[in-house]
């Protein structure tokens, strides 16, 4: 059976995704609301909300497009874009929320996103394993991407972390039984490494045909290593880690610019958007690095404040 979609829906899906990403980008760049003197845990929490929102924006755009491409053949395919949109809203709300209390609805949304991420990973794994070739390079390249649902898992995780951090009853907020800065640093470091893995896979698929394609597989692991070290080593100032994370934050947007150009370079360029947005380099993917870097910087600040 054919898809029910036409260009209308295709266009709407793409527009929604891109709008979500734009909103998330705007949020991530927003400073804390004026006039409220936030404590460091709240500041860190709000950074985490923004990070989560940006990651969710990336997931929203990506999953809306890719599941459109898959014709929403399984109704469950509507869930990730929906959850990503909710996480985006939760992040928008949380990013502007200076109260040191957790928010129940946001909390539930983040939990839901994590559950969706876990389920999605299962679905995508099933998709890979049912195709001829099973667990093979080819299916890792072209079947449902394993890294994509993990990004939603990560967005939910960052959101939950934000709720926990701002809700600290003690002076030093704690997360998963550890000082919050340390736990968050470990989470973000792992997230950076995972995202690097996805970029490596896809850039390998693209044969590293452009020199810049090595950047997202070389810089983020360095930043992750510095962040992980900062998380486990005795708390002190970490200028190298901070600069690396700032570079990674920049790299995400740079990557998006490169991908924009990559689409333009393909046959038909942007005029042929209905093909090239799908077949070209994924526009919403690189900003997930920026998102993680935002959270990483927050973790670093917490850690430097001995949290």
């Amino acid at each position: 059976m054919g898809t029910h979609s036409g260009h209308g829906r295709l266009g709407a899906g793409v527009t929604a995704g891109v709008a979500g990403l734009a909103l998330a980008a705007w949020l991530s760049g927003r400073r804390a609301a004026r006039g409220t003197a936030s404590t460091e845990p709240v500041r860190a929490a709000r950074a985490c909300h923004r990070s989560s929102a940006l990651l969710a924006g990336s997931v929203l755009a990506d999953s809306a497009m890719e599941h459109e491409r898959g014709a929403y053949a399984n109704p469950a395919m509507y869930v990730p874009p929906l959850m990503a949109a909710l996480v985006l809203l939760a992040g928008a709300h949380g990013g502007g929320d200076a109260r040191p209390q957790r928010h129940r609805v946001r909390h539930a949304v983040y939990g839901g996103a994590m559950a969706t991420g876990v389920a999605g990973t299962g679905f995508h794994l099933y998709n890979i394993l049912k195709r001829p070739g099973r667990w093979s390079w080819h299916n890792l390249f072209h079947a449902a991407p394993l890294g994509a649902p993990m990004a939603l898992l990560l967005a939910g995780g960052l959101g939950l972390a934000a709720e926990r951090v701002r809700h600290g009853r003690t002076r030093v907020p704690r997360l998963l039984g550890r000082p919050a800065g340390q736990a968050l640093g470990l989470l973000v470091g792992a997230g950076l490494l995972g995202t690097t893995g996805e970029a490596a896979l896809l850039h390998f698929r693209g044969a590293f045909q452009h020199r810049a394609m090595v950047l997202p597989v070389s810089l983020p692991p360095l930043a992750a290593a510095a962040l992980l070290h900062a998380a486990v080593a005795p708390p002190t100032r970490r200028p190298l880690a901070r600069w690396l994370l700032r570079l990674v934050r920049l790299l995400g947007w740079l990557g998006m610019a490169f991908h924009t150009r990559g689409i333009a370079r393909r046959q038909g360029g942007w005029r042929n958007w209905s093909q090239n947005l799908f077949a070209g380099p994924p526009l919403p993917a690189p900003p997930s690095f920026s998102a993680l870097a935002v959270a990483g910087l927050a973790a670093l600040r917490l850690r430097e404040k001995r949290a």
Partner: peptide, 8 residues
């Protein structure tokens, strides 16, 4: 199908 080929 030029320039637009196929994606699905």
């Amino acid at each position: 199908a030029n320039p637009r080929g196929y994606v699905r």
